[in-house]
Design a protein around this nucleic acid. Structure first.
Lengths: 133, 133
DNA sequence: GCTTGACTTAGAGCTTGCTCCAGGGGCTAT
DNA sequence: ATAGCCCCTGGAGCAAGCTCTAAGTCAAGC
């Protein structure tokens, strides 16, 4: 007997850090095909939908586009038969995230190097103005 | 007596993985205020400019906007007096990149968790189709 | 001298992902 | 029953960052 909480779009917006507009936009784009409505047409969200939104944001923030997300959702809706395919997609995504991390770490190195150069200049003032390098 | 190589926009496009369009766009937006022209109005790039472009891409790819980049370039053009300010900007940027790395690593964890869930479903096939969760 | 190809400009157009607006519905409290 | 609030829809608008087009210049090779 799990007590299942229900939420309106405004409550979900607060919980998910997405705007109401964005939530409706995502639904329109097919990212939330399972949200039910009450008699007045009001969207009713439940806890699992909020979890799903968090996962969507994870994929979105790692570079997956809305339409790719839609493809992923459609696979999910199709059920068991597509589990392997979804696992493959996620493995691929995981790999690209790892590459992103590597790239960002190399960027930290570049920024550090530049900071070092500037720090040297700040001491002995040998910069030739107007020539970023 | 350093031999200083010179490049046309097409050569720089190849070397920098930016399109010719993008290079001209960046110049128009003030990110490359130091590119000279030859007698016919053709842009002449040198090695240090290509280095600068790589650094610009580093900052851009870590979330700095074109207009922020422009601000940074303007400080650089002003010379020594702004070195401290530029160091501060880069320190701040470095910090945000580190936060991005942390976020991405937590996303890898989320993706892994999801893969684990799917892998479980693939084995015992207890997914309820149409209910992403 | 004509073609080819890479360069020039100004400015229009495109894509993505929101963001907002007008106009309206329905519950709840006074 | 009127106000206040949150909800709804369809569609317009917006910002960023390119991306492309039209029309033209220039230098080299045949």
């Amino acid at each position: 007997m799990s007590l299942r909480m229900q939420y309106t779009i405004g409550q979900v917006a607060e919980k998910s850090n997405l705007s109401i507009h964005t939530l409706r936009y995502y639904e329109k784009e097919g990212l939330l095909p399972f949200i039910k409505r009450n008699g007045s047409g009001i969207r009713i969200y439940e806890d699992e939908h909020i979890e799903w939104l968090k996962f969507i944001c994870c994929l979105r923030d790692t570079g997956m586009s809305i339409s790719q997300l839609k493809d992923f959702v459609e696979l999910t809706v199709q059920g068991d038969a597509t589990v392997e395919q979804r696992i493959q997609m996620l493995e691929l995504q995981k790999q690209t995230v790892q590459e992103q991390v590597n790239t960002l770490m190399s960027y930290i190195g570049m920024i550090d190097f530049k900071i070092g150069m500037y720090a040297g200049q700040a001491k002995d003032g040998r910069e030739s103005a107007g020539q970023p390098e």
